[in-house]
Design a protein around this nucleic acid. Structure first.
Lengths: 153, 153
DNA sequence: TATCTTAATGATAAATATTATCATTTGAAT
DNA sequence: ATTCAAATGATAATATTTATCATTAAGATA
């Protein structure tokens, strides 16, 4: 699975005339291994801890390139620093962010085909991608809020 | 309409113990008047040009406060600087961004009630808000792409 | 495999963006 | 009108991002 994906990334790069360098491969593997959402600084610090001599400029450059090639996706929660994740082909998921504890849940393929059709019909755009972020309260935090609201002050 | 909204913002601030100061009102009016999506620097520069003595720190602080109070919404397109817009109550729109020319189209209330219900059922979260960005090509840029693809090289 | 060519890298300087500090101002409660 | 804390603007301090450039290393070629 990952092997196959690495292969496809390699072809993707080559096709556009980019090299599959050590640092690029290392960042890719980092994101594949860690899963989840990682800021530039996350990636940089964690990789440096693993005795990797990588420079931060390379992280910026590589993430930008990966974004352009569709290898990664960016997630910007509220107003904070952008985080990146592997854009697995066929894995069309979205994010549910708890406003209480900040936990991020991924939820699977949304029934969006109809809505996209509607958008295309109304706007005359052709829609290629979409991202959806939902904000709310996880069960625990919802419980807490309820506790507060019934609490005597 | 705007009068009424200003009034509600005033109450919103007061309720939480914040003051309706000159700068806050000025920023709010700027966003109400200009419509669309504005970065921190946009707001700062335009307001300074209008002989406004406002400091940039105040823009940051005020926008953060307005976000927290739900008075504005943030839109972060791809990986660029966040832009802000008035969060009109009842105006639940989303953004369609042309990957060709960067133009942003707003599209109206999406049929999302079912999907939100589904998300809540599966994740046990209670969903309060959601944002949806769609990326694609506007009619003009779609046309251009087609031109290229049929062009002899 | 050794050589060559050029894109890519890492270090770091430079430029931008954001946050913290603090003396002064101002909103609004009294 | 007075009071007082919150808010402001200027700007210093940090943090983030981009640009520069000598060096390195993919990958093409022989």
């Amino acid at each position: 699975m990952e092997e196959k994906y690495l292969q496809s990334v390699k072809e993707n790069l080559k096709k556009k005339g980019y090299k599959l360098t050590g640092p690029r491969l290392a960042i890719l593997k980092y994101l594949l291994r860690k899963k989840g959402h990682h800021s530039i600084m996350d990636i940089y610090e964690k990789m440096r801890m693993k005795n990797d001599r990588i420079g931060i400029a390379t992280i910026y450059r590589t993430v930008d390139l990966f974004l352009e090639l569709g290898i990664v996706r960016v997630l910007t929660i509220n107003n904070s620093k952008p985080c990146f994740e592997i854009n697995w082909p066929g894995d069309h998921h979205h994010h549910l962010i708890c406003k209480g504890c900040g936990r991020i849940i991924e939820f699977g393929s949304c029934n969006f085909i109809q809505i996209v059709g509607e958008i295309e019909r109304v706007t005359r755009f052709s829609v290629k991608e979409h991202t959806l972020e939902a904000y709310g309260l996880c069960p625990k935090c919802a419980q807490k809020t309820e506790d507060y609201s019934t609490e005597k002050i």
